[in-house]
Design a protein around this nucleic acid. Structure first.
Lengths: 193, 193
DNA sequence: CTCTTTTCATACTGATCGGTACAAAATTTC
DNA sequence: GAAATTTTGTACCGATCAGTATGAAAAGAG
């Protein structure tokens, strides 16, 4: 047939994800992208479409891998409480000493694009709903094993935990004292009874 | 002396605040600003400095008025619990049926600029700390009047409530079911014992 | 009224934006 | 090998970006 593609599409998309994650959509230029992806503009357009489509592909890649990482952490401990503690503590310490604080790509997109673009409103909402469902399943596992109170509202608590994760992730971008985050985590975990 | 300024500086700054609040820093152009502020570019530069300085002035105006609105709501009811309920419910319903969801200007800035610009990291952090202090004072008032348990950690709970406010505000940008927000508010309020 | 000083509107700057036309390079099929 | 087809690098497109030079308009001071 013809010439074969010289670059690895997955590696290029991953590089694009890193740039968009770090700088956001508007602040990322095509020149930033070609530099980090290691390919030229026409290759980007032929492989991924325009800037918005590339961003969408990058975000989808992120949410997929993020969801599977969260699932893994929540299944790491037999105790549901330990799982959530481990989840919140990794969240708090992960980006704490890295600059700039990239936070969560999906949350960043909720703030920057969701209000002005329905596609991203839906995409980000679906990811949060998925996280909420994972949290709920985990809580229900705890109820079944007898670790958690049988009369708790697993759905409502799962939704609250999603809100807390978002709040913590965003709050960390302003670099408050470590104790601020630790207190909030501690109080939030106290909801899991 | 000389010619007097024809525009109202406060009104112009307020218009700039609305634009930046709605569109963010990067997505707002000087042309957007001149159109909404009703003045020409040289007037902006002579009165406020460059785009970043104007943004900073707009954010400072926002945080001042936001802080006083929050203070007012938290003092509206004799009962601290009622005050927080009223605060969270106004938060949940305020922007619920407006498009686009502007959320909170300070939170938007935490996501867009704080990670890349220390000035805004500090500015947004200070505002969150101030909110946390208001929350804490309100909780301590409740302890004094006997409405709340005397052994509660007012500081830790105030910080948790700040995190919840941020989480709720950002979550609403993806327009989840109303019940999602209501559940999270209900569970969060249950922390105020 | 004249002079001085500041604000204003217009129009422009170089730089950068997202996106593409085009032709050389490369690879498979025949 | 030659032809066909796709990718690649370069170089460019018009549009828009943030910011400014310039001179006219306006208003107080003498």
């Amino acid at each position: 047939m013809a010439r074969t593609r010289e670059f690895d599409e997955e590696k290029a998309l991953d590089a694009a994800m890193q740039v968009f994650w770090t700088k956001g959509y508007e602040a990322t230029s095509l020149s930033d992208l070609t530099a980090e992806m290691g390919i030229q503009r026409p290759s980007i357009y032929s492989a991924f479409g325009d800037k918005k489509e590339l961003f969408e592909a990058a975000l989808r890649k992120y949410t997929r891998s993020h969801a599977s990482r969260v699932r893994a952490v929540l299944q790491k401990h037999p105790s549901v409480r330990d799982s959530f503690r481990s989840f919140f503590e990794s969240l708090a310490s992960a980006d704490y000493h890295q600059h700039p604080s990239r936070g969560c790509f999906c949350i960043n997109t909720m703030v920057e694009l969701a209000p002005h673009d329905e596609k991203f409103e839906v995409l980000t909402r679906e990811h949060q709903m998925y996280l909420s469902a994972i949290f709920q399943e985990t809580l229900e596992r705890g109820i079944k094993t007898g670790e958690l109170q049988t009369d708790m509202n697993a759905k409502a608590l799962a939704q609250t935990l999603v809100v807390s994760v978002i709040g913590l992730t965003v709050m960390m971008k302003s670099r408050p004292d470590r104790s601020f985050i630790d207190h909030a985590v501690e109080v939030t975990l106290s909801l899991i009874k």
